[in-house]
Simulated scan of single mutants.
Amino acid sequence: MLKFGSKSDVTVVHRATIRLLDDAEILHCDFQPQHKGKYILEYVCKQLNILETDYFGLRYVDSCRQRHWLDLAKTAIKQVKDTEPILFSFRVKFYPPDPLRLKEEITRYQIYQQLKRDLLHGRLYCSPGEAALLAACIVQSELGDYEPELHEGNYISEHKLLLKQTDAIEEKALELHQTQLKGFTPEQAETHFLRLASQLDTYAVDPHPVK
């Protein structure tokens, strides 16, 4: 928490750290006690050039290790007053029925990033065959076409893409990457991933553990 001004005119400024969908990327947002949750989300979306903001939200973990969505209509600091440092995770809150119909390319990319996370953390349940094809799409997007002199052995094993990443799935993903997805641009591979993922029964489902 930062304070500016004289003793008679003190403005309290809180600093929030926001983890983006790519864990390697973070943002910082300074906000004041009167600012509502909407202020922080709008700041993040502006930094990411996202216009279709309604699909996104900010998650935080309270002192009891429970996850919550930041209420955009309520004062932000009152919701996270027991957490230090203030840490939010930028996530997709409302999944579009058909992500390929989104107007903005940057929105589609953020949905793609969220679905990659869902696949990695086991929230996007699918058959081994579907998992192999989704993994192959990610590899095609990140590595491009298969090049024998560059991609030796089981190069997919170097990438953690699935919660339960078996040798059989990796072998099938290798085959698909080298054949079926050859020639796909990164954008085409991501579009193919979105089309497949959005048709799964667990698309847009957020499972919660129960006791």
Rank of each mutant, 00 (worst) to 15 (best):
N154Q: 10
V205L: 07
A197M: 12
L51R: 14
T166N: 12
K211C: 08
K81E: 12
L48N: 08
F4Y: 08
S8D: 07
L119N: 06
A136L: 10
I26Y: 09
C45D: 05
A16N: 11
D30L: 13
Q79P: 04
F88G: 02
D98H: 13
T107P: 01
S8N: 09
Q140M: 09
C137N: 04
P97C: 13
Y43T: 09
L176K: 15
D98T: 11
R195W: 03
T166C: 12
E142C: 14
H28F: 05
I18N: 00
K103L: 12
F56V: 01
L124N: 15
A189M: 12
D54G: 03
N49M: 06
N49A: 09
P85Q: 05
Y112I: 07
L20R: 13
V80Y: 08
Y60K: 01
G153H: 01
L48A: 03
T75S: 13
K38C: 04
K93A: 12
L150S: 07
L124H: 10
L174M: 15
K78H: 07
F88I: 08
E149N: 12
Q114P: 03
V92C: 15
P85D: 06
I18G: 00
E84Q: 07
A24C: 02
Q79T: 05
L174F: 09
C126W: 08
L134N: 08
H151M: 02
K38L: 13
L120C: 04
V139P: 02
E52Y: 03
Q113W: 05
K160A: 12
S127W: 08
L200K: 14
R19G: 01
S141R: 04
A135L: 10
D201S: 14
L119T: 06
E130W: 02
T179I: 15
Y43R: 08
Y55D: 01
Y109W: 13
F90T: 04
R67E: 06
Y146G: 10
Q188T: 10
L174V: 14
E149S: 05
F184R: 09
K116H: 11
G153R: 09
L58Q: 00
H151C: 02
L120A: 15
E25H: 06
G129I: 04
E142T: 15
I40A: 10
K211D: 03
M1P: 02
E105D: 15
C64W: 00
F193P: 13
K36L: 12
